[in-house]
Design a protein around this nucleic acid. Sequence first.
DNA 1: ACATTAACGATGA
DNA 2: TCATCGTTAATGT
Length: 230
Amino acid sequence: MPLSAELTAFLEKSRWPSTLTESQLERLRHDIYERSFPSGSIIFARGTPAEHWFGVVDGMIKVDTVSPDGRSTTFAGVPAGAWFGEGAVLKNTPRPYSIVAIRDSKLAFVPRTTFEWLLQQSTSFSRFVIDQLNWRCGYYVALIENRRLREAPARVAFCLSELFNPQLYPSTESTLQLSQEEIGRLSGLSRQNTNRALRELADAKMLAVEYGSVVILDLQRLQEFARQDE
DNA sequence: ACATTAACGATGA
DNA sequence: TCATCGTTAATGT
């Protein structure tokens, strides 16, 4: 069965497939498949076995947990163009987080056996996965620093600007279709605080607030504002 | 004090 | 009609 044009284009713009040999690509094309999820749907609940590595072809997903009393914490937002889930696949343990579609989304599924096979077959693929894990680690170190030392606007600036991390999220578009509620979850702030922080950032012309989305106007200043220590 | 939650009307898709 | 937004009031630590 031939791949859809959309999935083919997605693989072509991803960094790692171009480093594979033709026979490795052949197996990848054979094993990979695509599925769609409506906004708000739970793609995988916490605790389900990690049988796949994922690419976000379209839309946006988040990784979060829900406590017994119904409150949720978001650990990461993953925009279109990114690959994720290697941690749980490598450990071969149940997923410690839920994966939820924030918008209507399309995901590429790479089965665990294919993923493991590529790791063994291709040093450049292994290197891609190592780099990916390393950048994630760096992200969480910076996140902890940011959250302990900075005020709300800088926290929001950090979470938004990190969605443009070229290694982890290489093709994020400047309009982020995120409600202020979701941005609050990502930043660890209430919606009301998020709203105030966003309008401060908008006053400084770093971004523009629109209905159901924010438009990044000056990514460099947003990054500087997120990281500068005061 | 301060942030978070609750609650409200207004407004956009 | 429903989601989202901006604001104010109540609540909690």
